[in-house]
């Protein structure tokens, strides 16, 4: 008898727990609050932005040469190629801005409206007006075409709403 009661309580609890997000979405609306996994728990090696990939390649080429695996000719060719790639990636990322490196030059004006400055889901609005990637974490930013303007999720083709946060996709 006791067991049956325990079983029913267990079932009721589980059903409530599972269905709660549907009936009372506002309670859990913020959803997915993973414990402190922003960017600081992550390995830089897990960054796959073109910039990071090209930079890592350059490092590796240098190291391979230092350990004698690359001949000078191969080294030069690879070096040139990946330096060019890295530069392209850097330029694409923040055209002519050195602000982040030099630190907080007079608190960047965080815009109230969401239009003029692109927003990183983790690091907030970016100081660079036309940034495509976040200069903190290298993540793709909201305004890029094909990505949700609110949360930065890659959108389905022809989507009218973001499937992650539900925001309407600008036409």
């Amino acid at each position: 008898m006791l067991e049956l009661v325990a079983g029913i309580l267990l079932a009721a609890g589980a059903v409530y727990f599972v269905l709660r997000p549907i009936f009372r979405p506002q309670l859990t609306g913020n959803g997915n609050r993973e414990p402190g996994n922003g960017s600081d728990g992550e390995d830089p090696e897990d960054d796959f932005s073109p910039r990071a990939v090209a930079l890592r390649a350059l490092k590796e080429i240098e190291f391979d040469r230092a350990t004698g695996k690359l001949s000078d000719a191969d080294y030069d060719a690879l070096k040139n190629r990946y330096t060019a790639e890295a530069l392209t990636a850097l330029r694409a990322e923040r055209p002519g801005s050195e602000k982040r490196e030099t630190g907080n030059v007079a608190a960047p004006p965080f815009p109230v409206s969401r239009v003029p400055f692109p927003v990183c889901p983790t690091h907030g609005p970016r100081p660079e007006a036309d940034a495509v990637f976040c200069s903190e974490c290298g993540r793709r930013l909201a305004t890029a075409p094909g990505y949700c303007a609110r949360c930065g999720t890659a959108l389905e083709r022809d989507a009218h709403y973001c499937h992650s946060c539900g925001a309407r996709v600008a036409a």
Partner: peptide
């Protein structure tokens, strides 16, 4: 996941 319903996704997680 397919319909982008955050509430359902959350329910699946639970």
């Amino acid at each position: 996941g397919l319909n982008g319903r955050a509430d359902l996704a959350h329910s699946a997680r639970h």
